[in-house]
Simulated assay, not measured.
Amino acid sequence: MDKYQLFHQLHHQQIGFVLANAWDLSSAQFIQAAGAKAVATTSWGIAESLGLADGENISFQTQLALVKSLTKYIHIPLSVDIESGYSNDPLQISQNVLALAKLGVAGINIEDSDKDTNALRSIKQQCTIISEIKKVLNENGFGSLFINARTDTYFVSDSPFKVTLKRAKAYQDAGADALFVPGLTNIEHITSLANAIDMPLNVMAMNNFNSAKAAFAGGAKRFSLGNSLYDLVGNTIKTTLTQIAN
């Protein structure tokens, strides 16, 4: 079984899986050594580790350099958080994804938020982006790369369920392999959404939502740790130094 097949299989098991997020090579190696079946990057953690705020404030070349180091030493499937693609041009975004594919990544996250306006892209615009990514991957022999379509509807909408469902179905038709909804913490909504779509539903740990077991019972197939490990490491360092000093 190759890395693409394994990563796809993880999303279609009877029970979901926890996906830990790394921000550099050492954190990815710790995750791999812990026996993880796959690892992902966290754009938040990467940016913070470089003294920057999240939101594509690092260059795509910086992203590529990090991923190159990860794929050299990490042997489990790697999914890369590419935020909104580092562009609003579908052609440029698809070339960015192709560059990552050539380094050996097994999957990507692609957001539907516009970094220039801080609003959601239109469904049509995001579907064009996903379709172009899929087209370019297929043309270059990377058609099995996992496209995780992230929607930020639960961060910006007053009635997010219906909006999310509409986007989910459109993104699937455009070529997405899964739906990622950070901010979705309501178990009833998780169940309803998982039952209404024909692709795996991914959710993310939040301050008030840290039970992967509950998410899986609700129908989610992937529970992303997001920036929680990065925050945990930072808090552990501060706590430890404070205890030593006192």
Score class of each variant (00 low, 15 high):
93 I>Q: 07
95 Q>H: 14
72 K>H: 15
75 H>L: 14
91 L>G: 11
85 G>L: 05
79 S>Q: 13
89 D>S: 11
91 L>N: 11
88 N>G: 09
90 P>E: 00
85 G>M: 09
77 P>G: 10
79 S>W: 03
77 P>I: 09
72 K>I: 14
79 S>T: 14
72 K>G: 15
83 E>D: 10
84 S>V: 06
79 S>H: 06
95 Q>A: 08
97 V>E: 04
86 Y>R: 00
90 P>H: 00
94 S>I: 00
86 Y>H: 00
100 L>K: 04
86 Y>S: 00
83 E>L: 03
79 S>F: 06
78 L>A: 13
82 I>G: 01
79 S>K: 09
81 D>H: 03
80 V>K: 01
77 P>Q: 07
81 D>T: 06
93 I>C: 11
78 L>T: 14
92 Q>C: 06
88 N>A: 08
84 S>A: 13
90 P>S: 04
83 E>W: 00
99 A>W: 02
92 Q>K: 10
99 A>I: 06
79 S>D: 10
78 L>V: 15
86 Y>D: 00
72 K>C: 15
80 V>G: 06
84 S>D: 09
87 S>R: 08
82 I>D: 03
93 I>V: 14
85 G>S: 09
85 G>F: 01
86 Y>W: 04
75 H>G: 10
72 K>W: 14
91 L>K: 13
83 E>A: 02
96 N>Q: 09
90 P>R: 00
74 I>F: 11
99 A>T: 10
79 S>L: 12
99 A>P: 05
96 N>T: 09
77 P>L: 11
96 N>Y: 08
82 I>P: 01
81 D>E: 07
73 Y>D: 15
76 I>M: 11
77 P>K: 02
